[in-house]
């Protein structure tokens, strides 16, 4: 089956467009999150969005309109926990992850039952993106890109050294919140296609790959963005050809590229 044929399906076009945008945003935000040691927040948020999705479906709300505010709130909360020295933050985030997953499964089993829907939420489906989802993805991605470019230098400063940025008169909390809210939005949008269990790897892998290869922040950001988009396109194509779930295939593509970059990094030494 040729590639041209593959993209003649409207659902594939939607998946490609939304997926490319979401993976681009994930990669940009991911660099900051990984460097700030906030990788677990991405994982926690994806689990919260699973719980939110389950509740939204049970209550008959449009999933995205319900999940977005819930996950944004969770992002605020998780960020506070990660920044509070009195909390054992990684344990707290792990607890939130598992609890929201458990709540989601409880709600589903009492309402629709464990059907293929649940499977789709957990591991994603290429068919999940509706026209409205795609429109929202375009909107949010545009916002992420514009904010990222405008605040690039400030985000760098806040990522590299919070204390110094604070002393320089920057409102560090505002930028951390911005980062968390944008991550929350991106994760909610990407979750339907990639799956709640797998979306966080889209945040983490491109940054890890790029950090092996580049030594400047700018290089890492650009490389992460390119790697993320390339892996998504490769994964989507492979999943279509081999009829494997799209989320898992994209993650495997990311893993392959990461291992390759480790190899290149080791050879360069």
């Amino acid at each position: 089956m040729s590639l041209l044929q593959m993209f003649s399906f409207p659902f594939m076009q939607r998946a490609l467009l939304a997926g490319v945008l979401v993976s681009l945003c994930c990669a940009l935000l991911g660099v900051s999150l990984v460097l700030k040691r906030y990788s677990m927040i991405g994982d926690g948020l994806s689990h919260v969005s699973f719980g939110a999705l389950a509740i939204a479906v049970a209550l008959g709300f449009t999933p995205l309109y319900f999940s977005i505010p819930v996950v944004v709130l969770a992002a605020f909360f998780l960020l506070r926990m990660a920044g509070n020295p009195r909390w054992n933050s990684d344990a707290a985030i792990a607890a939130v992850s598992a609890s929201s997953l458990a709540v989601g499964i409880m709600v589903i089993s009492r309402t629709t039952g464990m059907t293929t829907d649940v499977d789709n939420y957990m591991f994603g489906s290429v068919l999940a993106m509706s026209r409205a989802d795609v429109a929202l993805s375009v909107l949010v991605s545009a916002a992420v890109l514009v904010l990222f470019v405008l605040f690039y230098h400030k985000l760098f400063a806040v990522t590299f050294d919070e204390s110094f940025s604070r002393a320089a008169g920057l409102n560090v909390d505002r930028y951390n919140t911005l980062l968390a809210v944008l991550t929350a939005l991106t994760i909610v949008l990407g979750m339907r296609m990639m799956g709640a269990m797998l979306i966080s790897s889209l945040v983490i892998f491109p940054a890890l790959t790029a950090m092996r290869l580049f030594k400047s922040f700018r290089g890492v950001v650009l490389c992460a963005a390119a790697a993320s988009v390339a892996c998504f396109c490769a994964g989507l194509t492979a999943s279509f050809v081999c009829s494997t779930p799209v989320g898992a295939t994209v993650v495997c593509a990311n893993l392959a590229l990461f291992l390759l970059s480790c190899l290149i990094g080791a050879l360069r030494r």
Binding site: F160, F164, L170, R218
Partner: peptide, 30 residues
Amino acid sequence: GAIGYLPQQTRAQRDFPATVYEVVLSGCLS
């Protein structure tokens, strides 16, 4: 914020991918 501050280094900073120029330039932020 026109005070030059040298904070204690954090663990995350030691393996941060950024060039020297990028780091120094961020001092002009204030």
